[in-house]
Write a protein that binds this DNA or RNA. Structure first.
Lengths: 224, 224
DNA sequence: TAGATTGTTAATCGATTAACAATC
DNA sequence: TAGATTGTTAATCGATTAACAATC
């Protein structure tokens, strides 16, 4: 009987894990909620509270064993295994993802690549043969792939999502700047750099620039 | 005398804007908080509350003029102009970002590219000459660039951030899977696909797979 | 006018933090 | 033992939602 754990807590765990991996590699054996919090800009109380949803991992007076907590988080997040993923889109972004070294060791691997461009189909990318997008529903279930990455233009993203779902995928990482409509049981995470940039320019706009970049005509003024 | 607006509200505005751009392109003239909310999976009350921080943009009984609200949000987020950005890292990811069409029309442009690889320096990428990373502090201020994108390996990310800050950059978009330490006044947003993926595998792990992907040795079991 | 939807208030809900007993 | 840090409780803080008067 699992009690419900807030989604926002789940989203912080990978950040804790990433910090612990780094500490482990730096030869750190022991840490504390305070040290971890300082490093991440999070209060120590919050880290202890978050972890307490899953069990007791520390020792009073000492803190946490870096490697033990790391293993526990890997289990909790289910990245103590390797998840095969299907990448759709072999353009520039797809290429970058296919070559990305950061998946290895963090629980993920691109195991299949799809594109609609006949010039790309058949040729390997990062050692993986590119298949035609239309074959997604046929090929995925047999390979046990449960995660899809969408790296196609916005116009194609929804139809690719539909194909992936037909292929029994349960989680989508969407790089297209568009909201997907999917069944309730399918998880979606979005990556859109412009969304991140625009929340920074909100704050930047109010500040002084360098004085050099005012060449562009400044429109009517701020809201209000 | 601006009252303080919660950061979480600011982070939702670009999502509203993106939806409005889409509606505008689809020929939608008018919308309502309800329609917008349904489309985004957000309550209508929240949308009205968020917007109310900045003024009154709607009409009782009618809703919002799509184009007017879109223009207002563009002003509020300061993307009613074009922001020049410096891209650091001309590898696969840098290439993908340099060619990315999604910056145009949403307020951004890559105006300078840097890399340390002498084979890349001097050659153009997406029509922009690649300069050596060491020239960042010298070149950025003169060009009025206030935003930097970090697309280099994790090991190099902090030193690149330091160079960008020396070059007077005020906002960083960091693709390296590492937390940067920067002065308080510098804004940072992080993009790490693995963080997004790991929060989904938390939920996926508890579910049934297809039965085919159990070939990999399953470790000790779930937490607890 | 009747119907619809806003902007806003007050109530609810949930997340963060402070504090501390337990204990290594 | 003295010092440190956990896990947890209760208090605080902040965000979301429900409801509705205002009004187009």
């Amino acid at each position: 009987m699992e009690k419900h754990i807030p989604d926002i807590v789940i989203h912080r765990l990978p950040i804790y894990l990433r910090a612990l991996e780094l500490m482990a590699r730096a030869g750190h054996d022991i840490t504390s909620s305070q040290e971890l919090g300082q490093r991440l800009g999070i209060s120590s109380a919050q880290i202890r509270k978050d972890l307490s949803h899953f069990g007791e991992f520390g020792k009073q007076g000492t803190g946490y064993d870096v490697d033990f907590l790391r293993q526990q988080l890997r289990q909790i997040l289910h990245v103590d295994r390797v998840w095969d993923m299907a990448l759709v889109g072999a353009g520039d972004l797809g290429r970058a993802l296919a070559h990305y070294k950061g998946f290895e060791n963090r629980g993920f691997r691109i195991a299949a690549i799809f594109d609609v461009d006949p010039r790309k189909v058949g040729k390997p990318l990062a050692g993986i043969p590119v298949e035609h997008t239309s074959r997604i529903p046929e090929l995925l279930p047999a390979r046990g792939i449960r995660i899809g990455i969408i790296a196609v233009p916005a116009e194609a993203a929804q139809s690719v999502a539909d194909l992936l779902i037909e292929g029994r995928v349960q989680a989508l990482l969407n790089y297209a700047p568009i909201r997907l409509s999917v069944p309730d049981e399918v998880l979606v995470e979005y990556i859109d750099p412009v969304i991140a940039l625009q929340s920074m320019t909100y704050y930047l706009g109010a500040r002084q620039g360098s004085g050099q970049n005012r060449s562009q005509a400044e429109p009517a003024g701020h809201s209000r």
